[in-house]
């Protein structure tokens, strides 16, 4: 007997006392919890996102579409970034004014190659106000998962209000499970020393989120 059959057999024997029940799953679990917490206008939801991002030490900037290229250029210059990783589908205009060398997100790049790049600029798939979370789904303007991980400085552009949802349940509705997803809430952190939160371990130690109208 294979281990698969053995485990499945054990499960069935273990449940021998349980009477059969074919209630459809949707009826078993009462989803009477809230779809979002509190009532907010669209602008208030965006405000809450900004507040919660900042609460977990992400640096939040707000600007218009027209101001975006100069803001990105300034943030990269402030970091003295010499190079920036660019996902293949990133809007060309976002980096138009930045005076840094651009590194394409390519299959051939080794982790060491990525480690030599100073910054990365990506878009996102959705942002969650209640938790201060941005979610990347590997779309063309976000690139492979590793490019937003290895460089120490991540600039993430969120289009507001279209990409902002209030809550976790609303975010899951918008996301496609088959895509590789990365949920990011503030820069890398740890609670491993005396159960107190410290920012800055393996992921980008600086996360800048640009909320663009």
């Amino acid at each position: 007997m294979s281990s698969r059959e053995r485990i499945l057999g054990r499960v069935r024997r273990a449940l021998a006392d349980v009477p059969p029940d074919d209630t459809p799953y949707e009826q078993v679990v009462r989803r009477d919890y809230l779809r979002e917490h509190g009532e907010r206008t669209v602008e208030q939801t965006v405000e809450l996102l900004a507040e919660n991002l900042a609460d977990y030490r992400a640096v939040v900037h707000r600007c218009t579409e027209a101001e975006l290229p100069s803001l990105v250029a300034r943030l990269l210059a402030d970091r003295k970034a010499g190079s920036v990783l660019v996902p293949s589908g990133l809007e060309a205009g976002w980096l138009a004014q930045a005076d840094v060398s651009r590194v394409a997100d390519r299959t051939e790049s080794t982790p060491d190659d990525l480690d030599r790049v100073d910054s990365v600029v990506t878009a996102c798939a959705v942002a969650i106000a209640e938790t201060g979370t941005i979610v990347l789904d590997g779309g063309p303007d976000q690139g492979r998962r590793r490019i937003s991980l290895v460089p120490d400085h991540h600039i993430c552009v969120v289009r507001v209000p279209q990409q902002v949802v209030a809550s976790v349940p609303q975010a899951l509705e918008r996301l496609a499970p088959a895509r590789p997803l990365t949920w990011i809430s503030g820069p890398s952190a740890t609670s491993d020393i005396e159960l107190d939160r410290v920012e800055g371990v393996h992921g980008p130690r600086t996360l800048e989120v640009l909320l663009v109208n």
Binding site: E130, G132, P177, P180, W183, I184, S185, G186
Partner: peptide, 18 residues
């Protein structure tokens, strides 16, 4: 925390990512 810093979700393998 309202949300932990990173959550990864993956489904099988993805071409040229991971």
């Amino acid at each position: 925390e309202r949300m932990n810093p990173y959550t990864s979700m993956w489904t099988g393998t993805t071409d040229e990512d991971g």
